[in-house]
Amino acid sequence: MAEVTLRVFRGDRDGGKAVDYQVPLTEGMVVLDAIHSIQAHQAPDLAVRWNCKAAKCGSCSAEVNGRPSLMCKTRMDALPHDQPITVYPMKSFPVIKDLATDVSWNYRVNKKIPPFQPRPGVEWKMDQRDVDRVQEFRKCIECFLCQDVCHVLRDHDKKQQFGGPRFFVRSAGLEMHPLDGASRTRMLKEELGIGFCNITKCCTEVCPEEIHITDNAIIPLKERVVDEFYDPVAMIVRKIFGAK
């Protein structure tokens, strides 16, 4: 049986090193299978977070050959075998142990977003064309790969000033909801720092749910921030007509 070498990060937040493991290849194998094989036969203390193995729980996020990916969705036969396959934890978050990272910062950001608030006296009925747009945002599985690849978090570590693509997606789902009455534009500008995003679309490239994060969530939200804070004509129109 053919074997492949996996170079897996072993360590914790104080440091660590890459360790090579030989893994027998089987048909249809994904990277998570290979990691499980290592756990089962060579390193039972290897820490990895996983759950569904079907690309729906968003738990097994890691960096495979340097690309933020779900391990359960990355097939071994799609990777070159001439060199060891590197499997590292997500760079943007602190390592707990081996491939498991501490993503709790994301949950703290999530709490900043005002939840769904129905407009006063709203009729609880929605037209399909109004919900089509927000349904895309509901596909998010919170794998945080978009947060991992975003250079504002990854390279600049702006966790105090910037919310990241995942929370622009959540905000877009609420902002564009046909029955919602709350405005989140000031929060997007001041607390989630949407201006830090320079729309380089890496979040869209890595999204396993293929959500058009930049085009359908971030840019429309940026445009709403422009309406509210930077467009003098929109401000005057709003003043006169009081409408969106």
């Binding site: 960096e63 340097g66 690309r67 933020p68 760079k91 690849v149 250079h151 504002v152 990854r154 390279d155 600049h156 570590d157 702006k158 201006g195 830090f196 995003c197 320079n198 380089t200 890496c202 490239e205 890595v206």
Partner: peptide, 14 residues
């Protein structure tokens, strides 16, 4: 994507 641009403390984006 996932290629370091180095650390720029003053990064403010847009």
């Amino acid at each position: 994507c996932a290629v370091s641009e180095g650390e720029h403390r003053g990064y403010r984006g847009e």
